[in-house]
Design a protein around this nucleic acid. Structure first.
Lengths: 343, 343
DNA sequence: TTAATGTACTAAATCAATTGATTTTGCCCA
DNA sequence: TGGGCAAAATCAATTGATTTAGTACATTAA
């Protein structure tokens, strides 16, 4: 198939190339006859304007970059990400944008990272985790490229972001356990110094306090959002904290690891011990037992982030929006009434 | 920051723009003095050539498309995909390519699908599942854009592809159960009419036959690669096939659902019943009990697919390569010796 | 009837690179 | 001093679109 360009189409339709461009972009001042002639040729030869040339002329590529850090390597395998990508992608496609996928690793040279964010190629960037944000913001600082974050970042109050309401979710989870009669409730949390984590911890503490329960420092573990961390922590606690009857895990993966530790120690869930997770990963309903969890709208987070970004690209709207999506408590079999004291 | 282009750089370095281009692309016939002068300016102003203009001139975008079908919606949440993307991405970055991510859904118009594969924007395409292959091949038929598949597809023998050795994996899994003394072994498989599935089924049957065991039709289920399917199937079988003591699940997700069914029925794993999965998802080691599975090199599949694609883009090499990567049996706690007959 | 406005179109500049053709420079040797 | 020959540099075409400026003609208003 010989390559078709706008000039050839113009010739075939007996108009100038400007007219073809007008027709294709729905610009005014084109007669109906000309429009019909052009469209006929376009249809017949299945002509599509060259997007690269168009990008060069318009100085916009209709591509946005999505940047994930692979620092928490292990967590990349947990099913959360694909749903996030899907949400971003589908919103983008609806609005005529393409998605470029990148993973950042700390071993990457700054130069390569900059390369990933090459300003002539991306109309905007979504950062999916904390680790990439600082570097990205810095790299794009004077380049005038909009950024949106998934997960609020107090270090960057001038950048729009989307997050689940972490406080609300963690409070609800803890209260759920309190309502079931548990008095000794542990909390296992992920990465320190991340706003998300701090909010979840605060909500956990305040829920306990609000209901007249003690907040014990040794009932709180702050590690990482991994199965390994949940496993290790509950392995310890089942030894050291015999009074504990429930735990709030700040992610489903932590809960998964934790439940394995409980299983190995012969502690029955929920008979002797209740577990609540956070995230609502698709796999959570098939854990043994199925996990009570705080379901966050993962797909929706991606969707909304893309919306905010594209709005920003189009309007150059300077408003900063930091949005909280509501999570939802999903009660399954991993949580139950506090066991009656054996003493 | 005022926009820098090749002309301004040329002026600042007191050379013509061709020299700048030569320097940047490591072409010969540039004097050392000129090279040094140009590089000095490039460094000083942090100049990066406009990738869009470069693409227009060279007719190549250094972007490859990665297409996933979202038909099996549920399975998008299982952690397999991100690892595949990661493998593709890292190989691409090493070789100077970008990755564009797309999800195909059957509700998508053909036009939109074509749009996703816009020939002026992609140097090549990787199809990650069966569902998107036919349409993609057709769309790109006369466009001269290389394609590589993840998962062999007998309908397209002229396209390179990467897959795990499904026969080998399934045979090994089944043999593992046989070696443990199981005689009544079920098989739960995923999507019908996919080469992958057929090979796994064949290997399962032949392993049984090779070791003198009966192959029973009612011990084989062909459904989908989902937890739900594993759950349903084992729910049935625990009722109907009391003699069965083990099952080979053609995916870890199937196994996960299956183990939940067993748990609910009070069947202990591996005491009364053994389960082997396929995939080696990161979550498999935290299932209850940790899953014995056939680990496939998911990251490696992505990596290799990207390699094949880029080789094809660069050499226009007409060789068709259909490669099988070796899977590995990982023995954990979900499989054990066949229970001694109660009768 | 004339001036002002509006519509449909074309020509040419622009975007920012690559690259083949051409010219200039530098060097050696006769 | 001039001819021959590479090496190095420049020039200009090319890639395929958008978009501004300019033009011709028709319509409306004064």
């Amino acid at each position: 198939m010989e390559r078709l360009n706008i000039d050839k189409v113009a010739k075939l339709a007996h108009v100038s190339r400007s007219v073809v461009s007008r027709v294709l972009n729905n610009h005014p001042n084109v007669s109906d006859e000309a429009r019909v002639r052009v469209m006929k040729v376009v249809k017949k030869y299945n002509y599509r304007p060259n997007a690269v040339a168009r990008s060069l002329a318009t100085q916009s590529t209709y591509q946005i970059g999505v940047l994930t850090s692979r620092i928490e390597d292990e967590s990349l395998g947990n099913g959360y990400w694909t749903l996030l990508y899907l949400g971003i992608f589908e919103e983008c496609i609806r609005r005529g944008y393409y998605v470029r996928l990148s993973f950042y690793s700390s071993s990457m040279s700054d130069e390569l990272h900059e390369h990933l964010l090459n300003p002539h190629q991306l109309d905007g960037v979504i950062c999916l985790n904390e680790e990439v944000t600082d570097l990205t913001v810095e790299t794009l600082a004077d380049k005038d490229i909009p950024i949106v974050l998934v997960g609020h970042n107090p270090k960057h109050p001038d950048i729009s972001s989307v997050d689940v309401d972490n406080y609300d979710g963690a409070y609800t989870a803890t209260k759920h356990l309190i309502d079931l009669g548990h008095k000794q409730i542990g909390g296992i949390f992920g990465d320190q110094n991340v706003e998300e984590t701090e909010h979840r911890i605060r909500a956990y503490r305040e829920a306990l306090k609000d209901h007249g329960l003690d907040v014990r420092g040794d009932y709180i573990s702050v590690g990482s959002y991994t199965q390994q961390d949940g496993y290790n922590t509950l392995n310890l606690w089942t030894e050291n904290h015999k009074q504990m009857t429930a735990v709030f895990c700040a992610s489903d993966t932590i809960a998964m690891g934790g439940m394995l530790a409980l299983h190995e120690k012969g502690v029955s869930v929920p008979g002797q011990f209740s577990v609540v997770g956070f995230d609502g990963l698709p796999i959570s309903r098939y854990m043994i037992p199925p996990l009570t969890t705080i379901e966050q709208p993962t797909y929706g987070k991606g969707e909304r982030a893309a919306q905010l970004l594209i709005d920003k690209i189009k309007n150059l709207d300077e408003k900063v929006i930091q949005e909280n999506l509501k999570p939802k408590l999903v009660i399954r079999k991993s949580s139950g009434p506090a066991p009656v004291k054996a003493s």
